[in-house]
């Protein structure tokens, strides 16, 4: 196991402070009804439990439409859950609204995917960075703003400039600086690097890692790129059709995925090594519609291990091989997959 994954895992005990807790959270989006027609609902998030502790980075992965962004917005209270409880630092904030959300926003902030769209083009960087302070009723000093810019690798001279004068990577840095302004303990990053070029993506990922070390931040990192998540996550949660189907320490889940979906997902990620020989599980078909998900196990329509029992009751997250690693499957995989490559040994120094 890697040194990085090992050390961070050791540092975060089971009893470290809970920054975020979701209990049975659901979000259904109503479809607009038509006369003489039954109106359905998009079950975007369909019963999710998740805990994020101080100092921990939780990766949230899944295919498009699996409910990652919706979950992120529920956690930041940008959306109201249809059912379930959202607690932040031990306080139940499910029904907290308006001005009383202010202290909550201090603890948890969001970074968005598209740095271009999430920054107001008519505001200077200084104004953009002042906004979160204002929302808390604080007037920041110039020094504070400059300090923020330094933290994300920008400098004082950038304060008076406008978003269009920056490159994509720099705009994402501004987005991160804005989220850091009120010194939150937890950052929820929704696809923070997916709009960026590879070289720039690496810059931002490294920045997130540095900030974690310097400020003791926690992250929920939403991404569809499993390689990106592996680079930074301590814990991994895999979503499928609005539910978490597997969850556990990242190193364990990546090394020995237990849920057939996770296994297929991981095997589908191409590896930048022409010598890598890997067993690939090619899933057939598409993700079913979240309006009418399959009965029982949501993955059963595409699963290569499906049995009759899978159509009955939805499997719940249960520990695999003891410990914290859990999967929601009646027939979890136990062996490590054949994803090692033959020339692998030749590469180690």
């Amino acid at each position: 196991m890697s040194t990085v994954e090992q050390s961070t895992k050791d540092a975060i005990g089971q009893d470290a402070e809970e920054l975020l807790r979701l209990d049975g959270v659901k979000k259904y989006f109503g479809l607009r009804g038509v006369p003489f027609r039954k109106a359905g609902a998009v079950k975007a998030v369909d019963g999710v439990d998740l805990v994020v502790r101080r100092g921990e980075t939780v990766g949230l992965v899944g295919e498009s439409g699996s409910g990652k962004s919706t979950l992120a917005r529920l956690a930041t209270r940008l959306l109201d859950p249809t059912e379930g409880r959202v607690s932040i630092s031990g306080q139940d904030v499910t029904t907290v609204r308006g001005r009383r959300l202010r202290p909550v926003r201090r603890k948890i902030q969001m970074v968005f995917q598209d740095p271009q769209a999430s920054l107001n083009p008519r505001q200077s960087v200084g104004t953009i960075l002042t906004t979160p302070f204002r929302a808390q009723g604080i007037r920041p000093s110039r020094a504070e703003l400059i300090e923020l810019l330094h933290q994300v690798g920008l400098s004082e001279e950038h304060l008076e400039r406008y978003p269009h004068e920056f490159s994509g990577g720099q705009r994402q840095r501004i987005g991160i600086a804005r989220a850091l302004a009120v010194r939150p303990g937890l950052l929820i990053c929704d696809e923070p690097v997916s709009a960026l070029d590879v070289s720039v993506q690496a810059q931002v990922l490294n920045l997130l890692a540095d900030l974690r070390d310097e400020l003791g931040l926690s992250y929920v990192l939403v991404a569809h790129d499993l390689a990106v998540v592996r680079q930074v996550a301590d814990r991994l949660a895999v979503m499928y059709l609005g539910t978490i189907v597997e969850e556990g320490p990242a190193a364990e889940v990546y090394a020995a995925p237990a849920h057939p979906y996770t296994r297929a997902l991981l095997s589908a990620v191409p590896v930048p090594d022409p010598g890598a020989a890997r067993e690939r599980i090619v899933l057939t078909g598409d993700v079913p519609t979240p309006i009418d998900p399959p009965s029982g196990c949501p993955f059963r329509t595409r699963c290569y291990k499906v049995q009759d029992v899978c159509a009955t009751v939805r499997p719940v997250l249960e520990p695999v091989a003891g410990g914290e690693h859990r999967a929601a499957c009646y027939f979890p995989e136990t062996a490590s997959p054949e994803i090692s490559r033959a020339p692998m040994s030749e590469r180690t120094p």
Partner: peptide, 12 residues
Amino acid sequence: AMPRVDVPPKHR
């Protein structure tokens, strides 16, 4: 700069 999914992250 390309993160890899098949090996544990060793370094930045």
